[in-house]
Structures are given as C-alpha cells and as structure tokens.
Design a protein around this nucleic acid. Structure first.
Lengths: 123, 123
DNA sequence: TATAGCACTATCCTTTTTGATAGTAAAAGC
DNA sequence: GCTTTTACTATCAAAAAGGATAGTGCTATA
C-alpha cells in the first residue's frame, strides 16, 4: 500500500475509535430511548415502561442496570412506606444532549424521506 | 393517571419516536463505523475492511447491502479490467454529519471519564 | 507456475439480544 | 378479604447479530 493511503487510513481509524467507544455503551434498541425518557425528569420504573413503548419489564430492568453500571443513570431509593425508587440522569448522561438531539433531528428527516420515496415508487 | 402526567408522557413519546426511527436504520456495531470510514471518500470493499477493525467479510458485505437498501451507501461498478467496485456516501448519509460528530465528541469524553474513574478506584 | 489481491458467497456455529409468561413481597385501596 | 400497584426476578424460548473458516472466479504480478 502507498504511504499516503496508510496515512489517511490512520486518520480514519483515529476518527473511528471514539465513535466505537460511544457505541459500546449506547448500542441496542433501548438504551437511548430510556435516556430520552429520563430527560423529562426523574421517573419510576413503570413510568419509563409507559414511555418506551414495547419494552418488557425484563429488558427495562436489564438496561437500567447496564446504564447504572456505566454511570448513565442514577437509581435512588426513597425509604418510607411504600419505598419509592426513582431513576434519573447523571451529569455524564446529560452530556449526551447533542447526540440525542442530532439523532432526533436526523430521524425526522429520515422519516420524511421514507414517505417521499414511498410516494415516488407508487407513481 | 393525572392529566398532566399523560400530557408529559405524550410529549415524551413524541420526542422518542424520531430517535427510535433513526436507531432502526443505524443500530448495530458496524453501520456507523462503516459510514464514518466512507466520510473519507469513496472506498473499495477491502479498504473499508481495513478501516473498520475486526469486521469480517461476511458482516461488511451484509451491512453494505443493508445500508444500500436504505440509501445510505451508493455502490458503483466501474466496468473495465479489472472491474472496480466502490462504495460512497449518499446525500442522505451525508446528512448524518451531526450525529457522527456528536457521537465522536461524546465518545472522547466518555473514554476520558473511564480513565479518570479507573484512577479513582485504584486509590 | 505460484502467489496474491479483489469482492464477495456459503456454511456452520456461538453469543447476544429480545420476547413471552409467570411469579413475588409488601402495602394500599375498595 | 380481594385486588391493584410497584419493582422487580426467573425461566424458557425465539430471533438476530456476529464470528470462523473455506471457497470462488477473475486478474495481476513475481
């Protein structure tokens, strides 16, 4: 391979690494949706389940545990009767704002495009 | 449930939908990395494979097909001897710039945090 | 002639993810 | 006393994702 090619490849791999690091913690169908739900304030287990349509208790439980381990969600137990458990964002997950917002914006565009393409093909 | 609660839940679900739409096409370990690799210009199969460390031919082939179906990658055949096949971004995938950049930025932060936390725990 | 590069595909297998269903303990509300 | 709510866990099963390995047909190169 040519030296120039190797150089651009290196640049590419360096660009790629952080993206893959981020993906490692955020990948999957549910993690980002759960975090989005929590941007609306701290919530209880069942409230999150209501927001994130289609998630099962089992998945929600597992994903919350994963997110907690990565310091992306804080679990708070309010003792008393009955015990109240709430989940909330952390400083670390709040820093995901840009990611979520850009993904959201793109998602809107993408949906519009799908609709447009669909019309085209029906013609 | 209280009316106010229902309203914020509705707002949340509406916020969530586009994120989930986006995730549907972009999810997985490889799609975004492949697209990042192509932001450096059109590339051939083996070149992408070199950039995206760890991907197998099977996966790359499959993911490229998926991405092409969603108009996120363009496959170009240059006839001649030998035939040259190149992959490149489309207008649609170029619009992912913000998503990729924010994910990248967050990934860098996240890694730093991991390193910092690791130090803390060793103390 | 032998080897290497290109762009894959095929087969088989393992791991991970996701889903369905049921169950629990403790308290509150009817 | 019975049901409901809350916040889960357990078990089983299906589906999706990912990986290992090998092979193909073609060309260029040593």
């Amino acid at each position: 391979m040519k030296t120039a090619t190797v150089k651009t490849q290196e640049a590419c791999v360096n660009m790629l690494r952080p993206v893959r690091d981020a993906l490692e913690v955020l990948q999957g169908k549910w993690k980002l949706p759960i975090l989005v739900s929590l941007t609306f304030g701290e919530k209880r287990f069942t409230d999150i389940a209501k927001d994130v349509d289609g998630i099962t208790d089992r998945m929600l439980s597992k994903e919350l545990r994963d997110l907690e381990l990565n310091d992306l969600v804080k679990r708070t137990v309010e003792t008393g009767y009955p015990v109240k458990i709430t989940y909330s964002l952390t400083a670390h997950s709040k820093s995901l704002d840009d990611v979520i917002e850009s993904l959201r914006t793109w998602g809107i565009m993408h949906k519009k495009k799908l609709a447009a393409d669909c019309k085209k093909h029906r013609k």
